[in-house]
Nucleic acid binder design. Sequence first.
DNA 1: CACCAGGCAAGTA
DNA 2: TACTTGCATGGT
Length: 216
Amino acid sequence: MTRKNLLLNMYGAMHERLGPSYWWPGETPFEIALGAILTQNTNWENVTRALANLREESLLSPEKIFALPEERLAALIRPAGYFRLKARRIKHFMTFLHRECGLCPEKIADFSTQTARARLLTVNGIGPETADSILLYALHKPTFVVDAYTRRILNRHMLVPEDIGYEELREYFMDVLPVDVVLYSEFHALIVRVGKKWCRKKQPDCSSCPLAGFLE
DNA sequence: CACCAGGCAAGTA
DNA sequence: TACTTGCATGGT
């Protein structure tokens, strides 16, 4: 079995059992980008609270966040954890948006995927997963998002080593899959949904996992 | 009580 | 280059 067919079978098994995901949760490209920073090593429920705080104050726009003092931003996103650090990272991102595209996140999509990715990676606080999440889900650029669940699920199926690097794992998918925003979006969403329920560090029962025995 | 959650950068040797 | 550590809230 080729790697391409292996991955497509894996995708099919998850999609058949769980259905479409309608990811990423978020109304606008800007809100999706903020969510991508806020969810770094953090439960999504906590991110929801942080975003709700910003929404209640009608602050979910690039102009408002750009003008908002970092200390006040930190207080509002407190439920998301690492709140001082993340407030600083969001501010770095806002400075980038201001400089590169006049605070209009959609304009980043005018660059090629590769160029836009390289630009995002220069921002302090935006690493590969955050960059790929913004590119794929906010800007609809074809890049595969890798996260802890992706690595864990593939490792537990003995497809990759436990310590495989981000770029290598991303290429594991992108080298064989068709370049397709919908496929990449849905694939990653399904991986997270499966990971949360059936592939935690201390794993519950794997028997009901959609991927149980998908290799046969 | 311990452990975990959709990472990342800075520090150390 | 290759490890280690800080960051922090809220749920199980």
